[in-house]
Design a protein around this nucleic acid. Structure first.
Lengths: 230, 230
DNA sequence: AAACGTGAGTAACGTAGGTCACGCTGCAGT
DNA sequence: ACTGCAGCGTGACCTACGTTACTCACGTTT
């Protein structure tokens, strides 16, 4: 029952999509399930971790913090994203914290069950490699943006990226329900809340987009792209 | 002959250190060898690549460039560092360029011979995973530094990092032969050449270090650490 | 020697963007 | 109804850095 639900979720992830039905069921049976309220931490940077998580419901943010306590948001995740692989593969501490943005439920897979899975299905290793590869490329792009683009560019790029994979195209114009505070946006681009506020309004004044509470309706995608340098 | 030299080099890399002597010899025999002059490119960002390189002699810099042509130096490598794994594991384009800083010779291992190796020694996969994991962590730290630290902090941190793994402790005081121009240093911390110049002299005036051409003698490690926020 | 290129050192100036310090709104709890 | 509190909107500063534009000290080449 639960295992079946879990299996259908797992089937949607790039990591486990290749497995056959029986294998998915077995994996789903091994998976734990946890629920969190809005604002809770699933794990903290620096923890030792031996589990991978599959997001079943709700959204979370990935937070990288400096020793001084400043925080930078590396990404927001939504089902069926997977997180926590990094600490697992090298046994090191968790490199970032995970905090829920909404009531959330996740599946947990322990290192042991994954090793077992890999023993039976060597192809999974390749998928893990690819997912890590994507991570490296994303982080390189992030670092590049921080040195090559000004804050306007980074905000524009962030909006474009979020539109790419979360857009609801209501009536032609791509509209984006952020469901993030401006403080969160600021932490994603490495700027201050105030500057992000200014920049959003700047874009609105120029006619690139319209702001309505926490949703953004993009009017001029091309202008945004230009401003993002791409 | 050549294969033996290659084998001893491979044995020093973390990736292949675990292999037994005969396996190393076989691998060394499969390896190609190339030499470059100072300033040449070994490959370019965007190329399609199906080889991994092992640095045998000389130093290289890893360059990440923006579409507009601005460049950021992600790292400098020295023997027995390995590079080029990323494009190999996911078949994607090379994510950065490699340019030699000195006359350089490298070994090349094709995708085919590596797949073969992995088939015989599954443990190698784990090492590849770990090396990718290190890469992700390094890039996250890099991105974090860019948002959390000011330029002074990033320069201090860069010096500390280079001292860590390249220091010649002449007479107690750690001394560091950079063999990099200030322009290169600037590209490593995401600043302008002039600012880096100023900051180095600022540190010298404060007594943190002494500058002598391209070598840096650190006088007050603790002060540098403080300035780097760690 | 003259000419040229490369790397280092300085200074003047402008500005992107951080910080501080407000006020406003809407909502949850008592 | 009153009191927080979270999120947004805006203004007045101030400063860290980039940019531009020189100079000087070297090697190398012609």
């Amino acid at each position: 029952m639960k295992a079946e639900q879990a299996a259908t979720l797992l089937a949607r992830t790039p990591l486990f999509a290749g497995l056959d039905a029986s294998e998915l069921l077995a994996l789903g049976a091994c998976a734990g399930r946890r629920t969190y309220q809005k604002g809770e931490h699933i794990f903290h940077q620096g923890d030792t971790g031996d589990a991978v998580f599959v997001l079943a419901e709700g959204r979370v943010k990935v937070i990288f913090a400096s020793p001084e306590g400043d925080e930078m948001i590396l990404a927001t995740l939504q089902p069926p994203d997977v997180f926590g692989e990094l600490a697992l593969i090298d046994g090191g501490p968790r490199s970032a914290s995970i905090q829920t943005l909404e009531p959330t439920t996740v599946l947990t897979l322990t290192r042991a069950t994954l090793l077992e899975l890999i023993a039976r299905h060597p192809a999974v290793t390749d998928l893990v490699l690819r997912s890590l590869g994507r991570l490296v490329r994303r982080m390189m792009a992030q670092a590049g943006d921080l040195v090559f683009l000004d804050l306007h560019g980074r905000v524009a790029k962030l909006l474009l990226r979020m539109i790419e994979d979360r857009a609801a195209h209501s009536d032609g114009r791509p509209s984006l329900e952020l469901r993030l505070t401006q403080s969160d946006l600021a932490a994603m681009v490495g700027g201050s809340r105030q500057s992000v506020n200014q920049i959003l309004h700047h874009f609105e004044r120029r006619g690139y987009l319209r702001l309505k509470g926490q949703t953004v309706i993009v009017q001029d995608l091309e202008a945004l792209r230009r401003r993002a340098g791409s």
